[in-house]
Write a protein that binds this DNA or RNA. Structure first.
Ligand SMILES: [Mn+2]
Ligand SMILES: [Mn+2]
Ligand SMILES: [Zn+2]
Ligand SMILES: [Zn+2]
Lengths: 136, 136
DNA sequence: AAAACTTTGCAACTCGGTTGCACCTGTTTT
DNA sequence: AAAACAGGTGCAACCGAGTTGCAAAGTTTT
């Protein structure tokens, strides 16, 4: 139904089903990253495994990226339009230990690291923990 | 029995039991960080929950630190003698996607980040993923 | 319309982590 | 020395996130 949502799916080569449109819409609404269990709560009538596979598809197609914030559940957030999830696209994430929300700090890209020789870099997960602006 | 192991435990205010000495010895031997399930395999006769609580105690007392490398299991490594697990003590970790080992890059401290105003920093988990020197 | 393929729902399962409780062990108090 | 105590250990059960096989429902191709 939603033209924009539909376009976004197509632009990432994802067949736009009703389920996927709904999931993408919810993901887009979020101000902070959302986990599978949290998503389940928003879709009382959709199955866990369907949501799971939807997230996997979205991630494979680089519509969303995952963040391991150490909370026990992986969280997901919609990628920037230009994002290809290359090392240069990577940004820092912030996990608030008070409200347990995870923020994409899209403006802050992960600093370059000089690895010891012999080590090659594929990606980086950088999560800063502390207190967010809403909780202080 | 082991004087050094014993000293190290006492220096962190941990009562040196037989179990704890054995666990610390194994941890010290590791070249890469080790997870609870991996530790279980090395102690056929010790209980999972004992090992679990031993790790927790060690971590609380800052004898070891934990690394969430995204592999699904938290890994642990012995802290440097001087380490107090403050933000300045933090270093980068490397996870090899080939051999699935996690390395402490003790020489590489995590870069400073300028958080958006209102956000305060408590700690950082920075894991670089790629191919390690042994696997390339 | 039939065949081929994709998506969804259900149910079961894996695995890392966690906890309550009883027992044991070593230490302090009487 | 006996009794009381504190902390450590083992067992068993549990939780929750993630994952998978399979069949039903829905789409697309022929
Ligand atoms: Mn992000
Ligand atoms: Mn380390
Ligand atoms: Zn917060
Ligand atoms: Zn390797």
């Amino acid at each position: 139904m939603d033209k924009d949502t539909d376009k976004k799916l197509k632009s990432r080569n994802i067949k736009p089903t009703a389920m996927r449109e709904l999931v993408l819409k919810v993901l887009t609404e979020q101000k902070t990253a959302i986990s599978l269990p949290e998503l389940e709560d928003k879709f009382v009538y959709a199955d866990k495994s369907t949501l799971y596979r939807t997230l996997k598809t979205f991630e494979d197609k680089k519509l969303i990226h995952s963040i391991d914030d150490g909370s026990g559940a992986i969280r997901y957030a919609v990628c920037q339009d230009t994002c290809e999830c290359n090392p240069d696209d990577l940004h820092v994430h912030f996990y608030c230990t008070s409200c347990k929300q995870t923020f994409c700090l899209n403006e802050i890209s992960v600093p370059e690291i000089n690895l010891p020789s012999g080590f090659s870099l594929k990606s980086v997960n950088m999560v800063v923990k502390g207190i967010c602006i809403n909780c202080r």
